[in-house]
Simulated scan of single mutants.
Amino acid sequence: MSETVSFGYRDVAPDEKTKLVGGVFSNVAKSYDIMNDAMSGGMHRLWKDQFVRRIKPRTGEAFLDMAGGTGDIAFRMAKHGALVTVSDINEDMLAVGMERARKRRIEGLTWLPQNAEQLVFDDRSFDGYTIAFGIRNVTDIPAALCEAHRVLKFGGRFFCLEFSTNVWPGFSDVYDAYSHKLVPQLGKLIAQDEESYRYLIESIRRFPPMPKFAKMIEEAGFTQVKVEPIMGGLVAIHSGWKA
């Protein structure tokens, strides 16, 4: 890993990014789901539905849902009978997820604080690994991808849902204007936190474009890596197999 990494538009030391990102998500945990609806007009729900349809979880399969925070992906996979371990480096996000699961009477999930770069699980522990809107906040993305590969069984599947680079002519300009100007103001209005949402938008801009991220997944050891753009690449599903 290089001596500095991106924290939004700033370059900071790796240890500093980990602490700063932790602060961001502790700040936004309680308003995270409301803000997701406000920022995407509810579209994030459709993207997550499409993501889980792509995963095709089956009864009895063991999944690690990394950066699973408030439980959106885990709840959807649990409906299919999957055995889901929900992990997140931020315990405030996990607390929100556990409370949501309690209120919805969703049982059978395992909740465990974890750093994506240094997982405690044994080799070949899971049938599938999912991470939704979390990989761009990881300090050392290649390390996290290698850990994902390590904990998957042979034939295991990796799935990542993340914001990406939109390639529709004209749309990207409109979206840039919206995200940079309006999203921080929504954060200020709804979450009383303008700066955290400014970082979250900036982190999208610093995330590798689809072909480069696909190459990073291949370099971690995955085969049959595929990219499925949604809305022209506004978000994308990356997937791969552990051969």
Rank of each mutant, 00 (worst) to 15 (best):
T4G: 09
T4D: 09
T4P: 06
V5Y: 06
S6V: 08
G8V: 10
Y9H: 12
Y9F: 15
V12M: 05
P14W: 08
D15S: 14
E16R: 13
K17L: 05
K17I: 13
T18H: 10
L20H: 00
G22N: 10
F25T: 03
N27P: 01
A29V: 05
Y32H: 08
Y32A: 07
Y32F: 09
Y32K: 11
I34P: 09
I34Q: 15
M35E: 11
M39K: 00
G42L: 00
H44S: 01
R45W: 10
R53E: 14
R54Y: 15
R54H: 15
E61R: 08
E61T: 10
E61C: 11
E61A: 07
A62T: 14
F63R: 05
D65P: 09
M66F: 02
G68A: 02
G71Q: 08
D72A: 09
I73R: 01
I73Y: 03
I73W: 09
A78D: 04
G81A: 09
G81E: 11
L83E: 12
V84M: 05
T85N: 01
V86Y: 00
V86R: 03
N90P: 08
V96Q: 03
G97N: 01
G97V: 08
E99A: 13
E99F: 10
R104C: 03
I106N: 09
I106Y: 00
I106G: 03
L109S: 03
T110V: 15
W111N: 06
W111H: 11
P113Q: 08
P113N: 07
P113A: 00
P113Y: 00
Q114C: 12
A116R: 01
D122N: 13
D123N: 15
D123T: 09
D123C: 13
F126G: 00
G128Q: 08
G128I: 07
G134V: 01
N137R: 00
V138I: 11
V138N: 04
P142W: 00
A143R: 13
A144D: 07
V151D: 05
G155Y: 06
R157N: 10
F158L: 13
N166L: 02
V167E: 14
S172D: 14
D173S: 15
K181Q: 13
Q185A: 14
L186H: 01
Y199S: 06
Y199T: 08
L200I: 04
S203Y: 01
S203K: 07
S203I: 04
R205K: 15
R205P: 07
F207L: 02
K212C: 14
F213Y: 00
A214S: 11
M216G: 03
I217V: 15
E219S: 13
A220I: 09
T223K: 14
Q224N: 15
K226Y: 05
V227G: 04
E228R: 15
M231H: 02
M231V: 12
H238Y: 12
K242D: 09
